[in-house]
Amino acid sequence: MAEPVLEVSGLSKSFGGISVLSDVGFSVARGERRGIIGPNGAGKTTLFNVLSGYLPADAGTVRLCGSDVTTLPAHRRARMGLGRTFQIVALCDELTVEENVLLGLVASNRGEWRLLGSLRGRRGLVERSRELLSEAGLIDLREHKVKAIAYGHRRVLEIVMALTSRARVLLLDEPAAGLSGEESLRMIPLLERLDRDLTIVLIEHDMDVMFNTVDRLLVLDHGTILLEGTPEEVRSSDLVRERYLGTQHAAGAGS
């Protein structure tokens, strides 16, 4: 088994006395695809926010590629190779698709402090952004403002943005949220095409996307880990079926 790139131990977080995460610990190996499932309110997004530095942890540690990042701000973790997407699409609406991608690329080169020289004239970055946009099928839209493109395309761009940084670990928070069944099925090959060296942690309610993508699953319930195992193990677990999968899967298939 490859070395772990993301190690979490004893992680706890509460809001105003209500515990949202308690003593969460797990580790993800390099190149692994890890899914996180659990009912609404299980603490999945909170976990992502704590992992990526958008919320401070109350207790516990987060290690990224061997170094302790528990107290580092979000942008520092991003620079260390932690990319993420947001459940609610987080893009720069007034800028074009390509400008968004260029921003991600320039920041990953620590170029955001350059006051002179044109962003759009930086040949290397533009080539790289065209590559990324072509692979994601967004190249035709590159001169469109983000606010003017379809929601499904914004969802895809959200993933492209996470790829602009030299991410080694990607946290994908419901990449198929709000997509139609057909659109979310198109998300699967996109995720499969990603570099096998990239480690991916995925939150997703769409079980088709989930079971087609991940190697292992983590079941979160009321802020604690209920079960960790392969998709088959999770599927066959009575506990999980009773608590979560039965109802959710049916609902997921129905929508």
Binding site: S52, G53, Y54, P73, A74, H75, R76, A78, R79, G83, R84, F86, A90, L91, C92, D93, E94, L95, N100, L103, G104, A107, S108, R110, E112, M161, A162, T164, S165
Partner: peptide
């Protein structure tokens, strides 16, 4: 436009 996004790309 979006602070969260800029943080996530390392700004």
């Amino acid at each position: 436009d979006n602070e969260q996004r800029m943080r996530a790309v390392g700004v």
